[in-house]
Write a protein that binds this DNA or RNA. Structure first.
Lengths: 185, 185
DNA sequence: CTTGCCTATGCAACTCGTTGCATAGCAGGA
DNA sequence: TCCTGCTATGCAACGAGTTGCATAGGCAAG
């Protein structure tokens, strides 16, 4: 389980409340590790009980109080230990790929609009990544260690989206060809 | 949940026992939808109870009996219905990406051997994909619809591995540069 | 002949992750 | 005024997924 470690990294980069963490997961980190607010609150409570993080109640005006968490010593130590353990290979749950093979037993043309919608989503995400890259890393030569590591992860996201877009185009071409073959004879 | 649909597709392509399905998931399908034998047996029983698939006891000599499942009419209908529902975007759980950002709070050089091991795994998988492609799709011009769809999914796997290898090289270069900067001053 | 491995199925217990709902104050628009 | 929406946290219940173990026969190597 790496959710607790993902949260630790996020808190080390910037302390925050459960709610703020949930919003960060929706944006940057969430693309390679998803989590809902429920999971985050549960894990935060457990980590606080274990002494990995410390909490501070912060009163706000015009909105409810919040509990701001920071990574504590034991949390840092746990993260360092985890870094030295072997990495699990990443897991992908690619529902669309299952559907593409399933289309062989139905009408392949019925998938075209779905694939196109998917493609739009990836194109939008790529645009967002590239926008974030220009904003946060305008001068790649002048980055500290932390920023360089954040940047290389972001480049991975960019390349993933580019690869996926090209593949979806390949899928669409295949589906169109199959549809033409069907009506053609 | 798409596990039942992934199993249906696999059974439509070729009937088989729970054990055989588990081995198929370890190989081809498992790269974009993982499942253990426990999940598979549980889902098979549920699908049989729902009439989606039918089972046949097969006695074997020299080894235990097995139950061979085939997709039945209601299963085909359920698959066709699922195909028309909206696709969820694929989810990635990329532990290595979390670790790379975590390395900013520890020694980045400690990650190098891990990333290299990861790289070897992806290189081996790419080789296996390319080998399978030469074996199963030697003449792309002479494929029926089902094979064309299987092939385009395989091409997605190939492109994913190529992209990942290139990115891991990028990560390694970044880690080496950071390690050199550290010892350099 | 015993030990370990492979086929083949399954139970029990657990953790992870999701969904729906609840609370509670404040802000802004119809 | 009422309704919607945002911040902020949480409970309860469920479903998905993992881990450890059990059974049971046959095969091959030592």
């Amino acid at each position: 389980m790496a959710l607790e470690h993902a949260i630790l990294v996020s808190l080390l980069e910037q302390p925050g409340s459960g709610y703020e963490l949930a919003r960060r997961f929706d944006r940057s980190i969430g693309r390679f590790w998803t989590a809902t607010h429920q999971q985050i609150y549960r894990v935060l409570r457990r980590m606080e009980a274990d002494g990995w993080i410390s909490a501070e109640e912060v009163a706000q005006d015009g909105r409810p109080d919040k509990k701001v968490y920071s990574a504590a010593g034991p949390g840092r130590a746990a993260l360092a230990g985890w870094l030295r353990e072997p990495v699990e290979p990443e897991t992908v749950r690619h529902e669309l790929a299952v559907k593409i093979r399933a289309a062989a037993f139905d009408d392949p043309a019925a998938l075209i609009s779905e694939v196109e919608r998917h493609r739009e989503g990836h194109a939008a995400l790529l645009a967002r990544y590239l926008h974030g890259e220009r904003r946060d890393f305008p001068d790649p030569a002048a980055l500290d260690a932390r920023q360089q590591l954040q940047h290389v992860v972001l480049r991975g996201g960019v390349e993933y989206e580019r690869m996926t877009l090209a593949w979806l185009d390949d899928v669409l071409a295949t589906l169109h060809r199959l549809a033409a073959d069907r009506t053609g004879d």
